[in-house]
Nucleic acid binder design. Structure first.
Lengths: 205, 205
DNA sequence: AGTATTAATTGATTTAGATCAAGAAGATTG
DNA sequence: CAATCTTCTTGATCTAAATCAATTAATACT
């Protein structure tokens, strides 16, 4: 029992260490600011195939991936998945529209691997913004970078053929490419798995 | 001459008034914070067909549209325009990747109508963030909303047919739809002008 | 290891939309 | 108000990719 407690503490340290170094790679914080932030985080463990979020939910949390891999997707009327984001280590994931604009979620977020996450509650975040406004900067920078990445994704759908877009995807996310089934990459690119398979075959020769 | 000066002052007031009410629709500011911000803005007038930005430029400014309409686009090797954004009144426009990450611009920004803009310099903005950190919040909120809008755009290319995407575009941006030539809307949607024309014909009947 | 399940591949057919080409309708300008 | 330039439309053809269908390969399960 003592052993277990110790393990949990070590575990907690590891998760906080991960997010804190991510924070400090973007902004400079004091010990106090960091501890205000850390105090608001909750740990979540989720196994492959489990859902973090489903449509129709009132979303109160955003999630930081410490370890693992998830996909965020919409499901259309035919049941096709349209993947909006893969989230791996050091990414934030959530339904930002539902979270910030207080509308019901339309998004599925599902674990592709067993994953460890940290969650933050909407109310906690608002308090953090007031008590430690440096975190406005942290999220401003992250959102700006995410915005730029999305802009590039839009551009690639506008100007490139599927083969080029697939190659670009592999180049941009080499680590994701090897952790995710190909039909999910097809979903992300918005093409059929058959088409992606043929493209991959074509690239081999 | 006196008359002209007076006119310019009135003009200045109008432009600042526009951006200040936009700011105050998102955050609460003191007079002092607002005046710090206002002091960093420069006025720009640009006529239809002129460029605010071209590829290869070292980007030092972002722009707020007080009046007018612009398009931001990439031009591919065949000379096709891929429109990433239409900017009308109360929108910020710029090459955010080039601006924030100090890489050369790849973007054209061109006036579709005669336009009045306010520009802010990168260095000024950094100073504002330190002197009046409430503006971190302003830009965090704007970027978050822009991020959400882009996510919806990505989703629509993943799940919808061109006709549905065109209807969605008209619904989301009714004011832009009527100010921009159809072939530019086709560029934005990533389809040929001929195809959009046929879709529009089909919708009439 | 052997079975069940899930993922990837391959082939045949269909389709939405691109491309090519020409003309009509609007808008601008001398 | 011609004349020019720009935008939009229409038709014919071509092509990338979707869809449908079946098989093979890879994982997971007990």
């Amino acid at each position: 029992m003592v052993f277990l407690t110790k393990l949990c503490l070590m575990h907690l340290c590891y998760m906080h260490k991960t997010i804190n170094s991510h924070i400090n790679s973007h902004i400079k914080t004091s010990e106090k600011e960091l501890s205000i932030f850390n105090a608001s985080l909750n740990e979540i463990a989720i196994t492959k195939g489990q859902f973090l979020l489903k449509p129709g939910t009132h979303v109160k949390h955003e999630y930081f991936v410490v370890k693992g891999c998830l996909k965020a997707y919409y499901s259309d009327s035919k049941g096709n998945q349209h993947i909006i984001q893969f989230a791996i280590e050091n990414w934030w994931v959530g339904d930002f529209d539902a979270f910030y604009n207080q509308v019901p979620s339309e998004l599925f977020i599902e674990a592709i691997e067993d994953s460890q996450l940290l969650s933050i509650h909407y109310d906690s975040l608002q308090k953090i913004y007031n008590k430690a406004p440096i975190f406005e900067r942290y999220f401003r920078i992250l959102t700006t970078q995410a915005f730029i990445a999305q802009r590039k994704r839009i551009l690639s759908t506008l100007e490139k053929h599927t083969q080029e877009r697939y190659l670009k995807f592999c180049q941009t996310y080499p680590n994701i490419k090897d952790r995710v089934p190909n039909y999910n990459i097809a979903n992300y690119l918005g093409v059929s798995p058959e088409n992606l398979s043929r493209i991959r075959k074509n690239l081999k020769s």
